[in-house]
Design a protein around this nucleic acid. Structure first.
Lengths: 160, 160
DNA sequence: TACAATCTGTTGCACGCACAACTATAACAC
DNA sequence: GTGTTATAGTTGTGCGTGCAACAGATTGTA
């Protein structure tokens, strides 16, 4: 179940199998994220990055999160999140609220309109994720993939 | 081996397993592409997008490709590729050459300097891909993944 | 208390990309 | 031939993002 590769042939080109496992990964991600993003924009005017923010806010206890925590969650730089939240505030899907107990901090809070919009978008998105990804996998494959990703993010993260 | 999911529960949230298989995929891709890009820039001043272009050119018969074919290969818009090749020409890693037999077309041609630069970068990149991705997989897992990606890009592509 | 070091979020700036509009060439119809 | 349609590549423009620099608040130390 764990990595059992023969001593890696450093610098040598990838063989057929390695190539399929690696470039297929890249191709699949590119295709999926493009399609899901386009789908979400077409149906609800929400890009995927926005959807992610609403997702984390909607699923958090009080519908709010600290800016920096949110940035980490959606894998965005702090400045990137500042701008993204700017747009969400403009569209009245999110509000900024001073963080009680720490005058430096700000909380992003999802509004009722934001929740409504997100609930609609979630249907579309879940449907897309299933149809384009999950439905192509058997139960065993899903389990295996979940394990692989888990293993990788543990191994890869602390290295940088 | 093929998809055997019970009739998808449309709209319902993802269960634990589905979540792991899906969000892990996203997280892993984000982390890997960030790290590999940063690594390549630090070591050779080449971003990943540039590396991809040089890869396709270096591996093509005469070290040259039509602009539009190249754009499709590296998953970039045509305008995006035009600008990217502009930069490569400025850095003298690639040249533009009129396409014989079609006065509309242009070929991007890798230069000697481009080949040299790419050969260096390739070592770094292959090493990174192995260390961060392939080495975490057993042979069976690599085989399974290659199959999954293949199945998915066939199913997902024509749908859009 | 005072002062340095750290942390939070925002802003200036530059970059890379996509979309749409455009020019030039090619392919096809008649 | 002429006219129409399709294709190739470039350019104008706007958007989303990261990095570096910054102001304000907090924590730690003397």
């Amino acid at each position: 179940m764990s990595a059992t590769t023969s001593p890696t042939r450093r610098g040598k080109q990838l063989d057929e199998l390695e190539l399929g496992a690696w470039r297929g990964f890249l191709r699949t991600h590119a295709a999926l994220s493009r399609q899901l993003d386009a789908e979400l924009i077409a149906a609800h005017g929400l890009p995927l990055s926005t959807y992610e923010v609403l997702l984390f806010l909607a699923d958090s206890p009080d519908g709010q999160m600290r800016m920096s925590d949110l940035a980490d969650s959606v894998l965005l730089s702090r400045s990137g999140l500042t701008r993204l939240v700017d747009r969400l505030v403009r569209d009245e899907l999110v509000e900024r609220r001073a963080c009680p107990g720490d005058a430096r901090g700000m909380n992003a809070v999802i509004t009722d309109a934001g929740r409504a919009r997100f609930a609609e978008a979630r249907k579309t998105h879940l449907d897309g994720v299933r149809r384009r990804y999950l439905d192509h996998l058997s139960d065993e494959e899903r389990e295996l993939l979940a394990g692989i990703w888990d293993r990788m993010s543990q191994g890869a993260m602390p290295a940088c």
